[in-house]
């Protein structure tokens, strides 16, 4: 792949240099905004600009001592964890079923199952707002958990489905021929093998719920406001450095999720490599 070490003509060298320069600028464009707001959260002053007058943790202190922010963090966790669990159960079952199901309707069913990802957030939110209000599900944790589960499950179906595709069904047959009950075979043979896929699905599901704000805007009462929802009002009203502290906390969660996912991917590749 490293053809570019031996570029022959000057025009090729120029094109390659241009690619590197443009890409570098794009990388800066992508990463700089996220990096730029982080130090501001450690500022001792209340202006969101550089140079920092001094360093302090006062905005984190503000975050931790604010019942509003802490409540929103708690809500994000409750809704995120609950909808992850629910979407894992529904999504894994569906992925197992879809892997075995042979029908000409399968593409249609798959398209339906994945459609929550494509439909604009506002449309889902408005539909749910009308549908859940008469049932008393707006302004409730249950309503938000159900809505976030619907958004998160497609990611579970995709990740678990991809893992099942590379799963050797002969292993399940071997377990059955050796007398294992389907449940035992699932627990001892299938589950350990698809576990990394399940974990990635769970991370995707959690990230989806943890990041979601449009549905929360429509459906959450003051009690159920999540962290992104609180940031939304914060940005609307006036941007205080406390928001940058919240942003750093959110980004830290994202980085942990991303790192875990990357670790799972690497582990998976290593396992594939050793089995080949």
């Amino acid at each position: 792949m490293s053809d570019h070490s031996s570029l022959r003509t000057p025009s090729q060298r120029i094109a390659w240099t241009a690619t590197i320069v443009i890409s570098t600028l794009v990388f800066i464009f992508l990463i700089a905004p996220i990096l730029a707001i982080m130090p501001l959260s450690f500022s001792s002053g209340s202006y969101l600009t550089y140079p920092l007058p001094g360093l302090s943790l006062r905005w984190y202190d503000d975050f931790i001592n604010s019942p509003r922010w802490m409540n929103s963090l708690k809500n994000s966790m409750i809704i995120g964890v609950a909808s992850t669990l629910l979407s894992m159960v529904l999504g894994t079952l569906a992925a197992l079923g879809l892997a075995q199901w042979k029908s000409r309707f399968k593409p249609l069913v798959l398209a339906f199952v994945l459609s929550p990802v494509v439909v604009p957030g506002v449309i889902t939110a408005v539909g749910l707002y009308f549908f859940f209000a008469p049932l008393g599900l707006t302004g409730s944790y249950l309503g938000l958990i159900l809505a976030h589960t619907a958004l998160a499950t497609p990611f579970v179906v995709i990740t678990v489905g991809a893992t099942l595709q590379s799963f050797d069904t002969n292993l399940a047959r071997a377990a059955a021929s050796l007398g294992a009950s389907p449940l035992y075979a699932f627990r001892r043979v299938i589950l350990p093998l698809i576990l990394p896929g399940l974990a990635s699905g769970a991370l995707f599901a959690f990230a989806t719920s943890f990041d979601e704000v449009v549905i929360v805007l429509f459906m959450a009462g003051p009690e159920q406001r999540t962290l992104p929802r609180e940031m939304f009002s914060g940005i609307r009203e006036n941007i205080s450095p406390t928001i940058t502290a919240a942003a750093v906390i959110l980004t830290t969660v994202s980085v942990i999720l991303l790192a875990t996912l990357e670790g799972l991917r690497r582990r998976n590749e290593r396992l594939k490599g050793s089995s080949a």
């Binding site: 996220i34 707001i37 704000v213 992104p228 940005i235 942003a247 991303l258």
Partner: peptide, 10 residues
């Protein structure tokens, strides 16, 4: 992977 709100805020 960074929250949409964080990026918009940034």
């Amino acid at each position: 992977w960074t929250s949409l709100l964080v990026r918009t805020c940034a």
